[in-house]
C-alpha cells in the first residue's frame, strides 16, 4: 500500500521512499524517512494535493509524490 491510498483520518508507518533525484531527496529531508509514523489529515478541495501530519508538523505533498511512499501497518477505519 502506498501513502496516496490512505484515507483521511488514517495513518501508517513508512516502509520505503521511492522516486529519484530532487523529489526523493526533498521527501527524505522533510522527515519522510522509513519507520516514521504519518497520518493523512485531509485532501485539498480539488482532490489533490494531500495534507499529512508527521514529526509534529503539517506537510502537504501531491498524490503523485505520495504514490512513491510505500507504507506498512496501515490503520484504516
Amino acid at each position: 500500500m502506498t501513502l496516496d491510498m490512505i484515507k483521511p483520518g488514517n495513518g501508517g508507518i513508512i516502509k520505503s521512499v521511492g522516486g529519484e533525484g530532487i523529489l526523493r531527496r526533498r521527501l527524505l529531508d522533510m522527515g519522510l524517512t522509513p519507520k516514521t509514523r504519518v497520518e493523512v489529515r485531509k485532501v485539498a478541495p480539488m482532490g489533490d494535493p494531500i495534507e499529512l501530519f508527521l514529526r509534529s508538523y503539517v506537510l502537504t505533498i501531491r498524490r503523485d509524490e505520495a504514490a512513491k511512499i510505500v507504507m506498512e501497518e496501515v490503520t484504516n477505519k
Binding site: 530532487i22 526533498r26 521527501l27 495534507e51 503539517v58 502537504t60 501531491r62 509524490e65
Partner: peptide, 12 residues
C-alpha cells in the same frame, strides 16, 4: 527541467 517538487509545510 525539473520543477521544484511541491513538498510544502503548512505552518500553524
Amino acid at each position: 527541467g525539473n520543477p521544484v517538487p511541491f513538498v510544502m509545510e503548512l505552518p500553524a
